[in-house]
């Protein structure tokens, strides 16, 4: 099956000469949640803006369900809902007014039942007649999501949906996104919060300086690039590491109670067996053994640093 979104060699050079995207290619399948991670100015928003029709690409192409975003823009845009990064709303409009406007703008006849469903799902139903300017920041964010869902899109772009949103609301939003995925919506989200990508995404793409550094299944990415660490809690504290262990890259904690050893899970030889036998030879015994998997955050930082 062909991918739902096919981005091919997309380049964007702004009028001021800034190159925001350097030949990005990416394909996204129907029904998945993909998270795009990257520092500020990496090109995430530019990429989304091109796909949605807000910014003209310099070169390259984007196809959605086989339709070109420029030639067949009516077909492609009708499939997409966009939640922008900034809280841009019509302050004087009511919630109901603004979601009705969105649905009409996308070429659909009114369907109050659908809008009611969307507003209820986002806990905005009791605010439907309130003016947007009277709402809190978190509610405004949800209004933007409601607007993006008003025309029943197949694809939802969430550009940093939880920036500046408190923890409990963030959890609610994640639940909403999962429900959307259940209903068959393909979701592309950009985020600064690695936690968010780790929590929600099926795949993770890392963008830096206008290039996609890596796109992987989240689990695969973590397996491939994941470092693990064994932490041994010793029965007797050591004042210094014995010479026999100098061949291992070990760290001794300050109190001398713990030895930690980092290794790459995918390496042919992790060195754990050797380490443990070396410890046995030195008569160092331990009371506890713990392993830690590095988080997506560690992976992300190391990727961006490598690329720099």
């Amino acid at each position: 099956m062909a991918a739902l979104i096919e981005i091919d060699n997309l380049t964007k050079i702004y009028d001021n000469g800034f190159t925001a995207l350097k030949g990005v290619s990416l394909s996204i399948d129907k029904g998945e949640i993909i998270a795009l991670l990257g520092p500020n100015g990496a090109g995430k928003t530019t990429m989304i803006s091109i796909v949605c029709g807000i910014v003209n690409p310099t070169s390259g192409s984007v196809k959605i369900a086989g339709n070109d975003i420029i030639r067949d823009y009516r077909k492609t845009r009708a499939m997409i809902g966009l939640v922008p990064q900034e809280l841009t709303t019509d302050a004087f409009e009511s919630v109901w007014g603004t979601v009705s406007f969105s649905r009409g703008l996308f070429g659909l006849p009114p369907k109050p039942a659908h809008l009611e469903k969307v507003l209820k799902a986002l806990s905005l139903w009791d605010k439907k007649d309130s003016k947007i300017m009277t709402l809190s920041g978190g509610m405004k964010r949800r209004v933007l999501i409601a607007k993006a869902l008003a025309h029943e899109p197949d694809i939802l772009f969430l550009d940093e949906p939880t920036a500046g949103v408190d923890v409990s609301l963030r959890k609610d939003m994640w639940a909403t996104v999962r429900d959307l995925r259940e209903s068959g919506v393909t979701i592309i989200l950009t985020t600064h919060y690695i936690e968010e990508a780790e929590e929600m995404a099926d795949r993770v793409g890392v963008i830096n300086n206008g290039e996609i550094i890596v796109v992987e299944e989240k689990a695969e990415l973590m397996r491939k690039l994941g470092k693990k660490e064994v932490v041994l809690t010793l029965n007797e504290p050591l004042s210094a590491l014995p010479d026999a262990l100098s061949g291992f890259d070990l760290t001794l904690s300050e109190d001398g109670q713990q030895i930690s050893y980092a290794y790459v899970t995918t390496a042919k030889r992790t060195g754990i067996t050797k380490l443990l036998s070396a410890l046995a030879e030195e008569d160092i015994t331990f009371s506890d053994l713990d392993t830690k998997q590095s988080s997506l955050e560690d992976i992300f930082v190391s990727l961006v640093e490598d690329a720099a």
């Binding site: 807000i54 492609t76 845009r77 997409i80 966009l82 922008p84 019509d90 996308f106 070429g107």
Partner: peptide, 10 residues
């Protein structure tokens, strides 16, 4: 900034 919606509409 609400222009984004008009630009992204079909």
């Amino acid at each position: 900034g609400t222009i984004y919606e008009i630009l992204s509409a079909p």
